[in-house]
């Protein structure tokens, strides 16, 4: 397959102009932005952001995310116990949405990106077609985990009836937003073209072995 890299060309990530590579970082001749042929230190950055997101995800689940005051009595709820409450009240669709957005999606994103980084690094059982699709799904799902944060923000503002009921946000909300933003950074710093590069190298090595 003919790739831009093999021809000594590089695609500008901002304006999608194909530039000639002279020295890195390359300055785009169209939009004047500077960029690298592949995202700079992509795997390291992805791994680091991902690790940070995973660490922040632990306190996000342990601390309460929302505190409901009813007649002055505080009742704390973590992400998981909040979901349990929905199930108790019979609000299954909401329980499923919140569970997907705030537990499954961040975890899938973190695990998925770790797997992708590992696959590119070692080249084990690499299927670029399938893996780049997975990467797309992960990238698309990113912002949707902010759902819980927005729900808490809305609840805090709207349920403010003085002594009767009021809602406050718990410390977990900060950790949770950090998790979401860091996973978004991680997904942005991963470069799916590395998957194809690695595959190309592998198939070349295979051919070289066959001929000798």
């Amino acid at each position: 397959m003919r790739t831009a890299k093999s021809k000594g060309l590089a695609l500008c990530p901002k304006c999608h102009k194909v530039n000639k590579v002279v020295s890195e970082p390359i300055q785009c001749s169209r939009c004047m932005g500077s960029f690298y042929q592949r995202k700079y230190n992509s795997l390291q950055y992805t791994f680091a952001w991902n690790l940070a997101a995973l660490l922040a995800f632990i306190p996000a689940n342990l601390y309460p995310i929302m505190v409901v005051y009813q007649l002055g009595v505080p009742k704390e709820a973590t992400i998981l116990s909040g979901i349990g409450e929905f199930i108790d009240h019979g609000l299954y669709p909401i329980a499923v949405i919140i569970f997907t957005a705030s537990i499954i999606v961040p975890l899938m994103k973190i695990i998925g990106l770790f797997v992708l980084v590992y696959k590119v690094h070692t080249g084990m059982r690499l299927k670029p077609n399938k893996h780049s699709k997975i990467y797309h799904i992960l990238e698309f799902l990113g912002p949707w985990s902010m759902l819980d944060v927005f729900v808490v923000a809305l609840m805090v503002t709207i349920v403010e009836l003085g002594f009767v009921t009021s809602v406050a946000a718990g410390p977990a909300i900060n950790y949770f937003t950090i998790t979401v933003i860091f996973t978004m950074f991680a997904a942005n710093s991963f470069d799916p073209r590395l998957l194809w590069d690695k595959k190309e190298i592998q198939s070349k090595e295979k051919n070289a072995l066959k001929t000798t």
């Binding site: 790739t3 831009a4 590089a10 695609l11 999608h16 670029p128 799916p192 073209r193």
Partner: peptide, 12 residues
């Protein structure tokens, strides 16, 4: 001659 490269897999 003008080129386009794929953003996802770098094919030219």
């Amino acid at each position: 001659k003008q080129w386009v490269a794929c953003q996802q897999c770098d094919a030219l």
